[in-house]
Design a protein around this nucleic acid. Structure first.
Lengths: 188, 188
DNA sequence: TCAAGAAAAACGAGGGGTCGCTCTTTTTAT
DNA sequence: ATAAAAAGAGCGACCCCTCGTTTTTCTTGA
């Protein structure tokens, strides 16, 4: 029987993830040492290895949290929600940097690539739904319309990712050209 | 003394850079060891440190080569050259992966960020030029037109970068949605 | 012959991961 | 009820390995 509550265990685990994410965003995965995570989390080395069996497992956990939940945010918002979302992104340069690290790692790590691919697919699906809704259509009615929405979603998501990337490198990027471009893509 | 020509020295240096780039693209910067570069280049440890004083210097050299020359390619092509360029990109997934590594590193390394920022600015300038040309305008004639072209270039470059990023992670991505979106952006 | 350039060995630092220990909490036997 | 015992949670020193770099040794062509 557990000595402490499950909530406590979850909190500890989250504590580790939070510390790791903060460091990952500013220093990258490779330049973040276990000692950094130990210090940042306020726990000890041994304690951390009680919750994660390796550094890589921490990386995966951070990646999952960073990408999940994004489609839900989108679909629950209004039709124009994604435009607002862009402005939310602009505030958090650290998040943008983290995402850049994740994508780079995914490019050279098959398991992480699989994870990110799934997240991207879910995101595109959510956007495609929004596009159809905006056009007053239901999915599954017209094959060609669906295909077109998917194409739009493909470019849409890529442009958002591209914006994120620019943000990660250049720090402050005016969102205006992007919102305009997104509108042009959706209404092409 | 076996004095060798400058051309030979340059070739050796390039030999190192090529080996490093290949490994960087498939394994990332951190997971590429000096031993990997030594083996890949066919040279020796001591030889490499004769041409570069540190690993970081090799990284910088690879980044420079990866980004320079791109604007020239664009401007020397026809007005619609960038669309063709997209399809060229699609062939080289390794290059896409390399660029993902570079951007991630730039996000956490100020000197590299400065380098990449300059490259991006040059690229945007070249694209803006193309956009103006496509619209039958000269730069410097109309302030508003120029500004608009810069805005278009901003989104344009970001979308290309986004496409590259998707390519790096997902391997095969249909370029069609991107060419369509790029047209929509330019002609918005 | 001799210096320049390449190869190879060696080094110090720092990395991730392990292990035995302590302390607290829960169980159990009297 | 209470003390002994068991088990979980956390700790931190330590191990071994790999890395980037330096130093030493060998090759070679003028």
């Amino acid at each position: 029987m557990p000595k402490v509550s499950q909530a406590h265990l979850d909190a500890r685990r989250q504590q580790i993830i939070d510390a790791a994410r903060a460091r990952f965003a500013t220093h990258g995965f490779a330049r973040t040492s276990m000692a950094d995570i130990v210090t940042g989390s306020g726990l000890s080395n041994g304690a951390i290895y009680r919750y994660f069996t390796s550094k890589e497992e921490i990386v995966v956990a951070v990646c999952e949290q960073a990408g999940d939940g994004l489609p839900q945010e989108l679909t629950t918002e209004a039709v124009n929600g994604f435009l607002e979302h862009i402005r939310t992104l602009a505030r958090d340069a650290d998040h943008a940097r983290l995402v850049a690290q994740i994508y780079a790692e995914a490019a050279v790590s098959p398991p992480l690539a699989a994870l990110v691919r799934d997240q991207l697919a879910a995101l595109r699906a959510a956007v495609a739904e929004l596009v159809l809704a905006r056009r007053g259509l239901d999915r599954g009615r017209d094959r060609d319309r669906d295909r077109d929405a998917e194409r739009v979603a493909e470019a849409f998501v890529a442009l958002c990712a591209g914006y994120n990337q620019q943000l990660a490198i250049r720090g402050d990027v005016d969102p205006a050209p992007y919102t305009a471009a997104l509108m042009a893509i959706v209404e092409e």
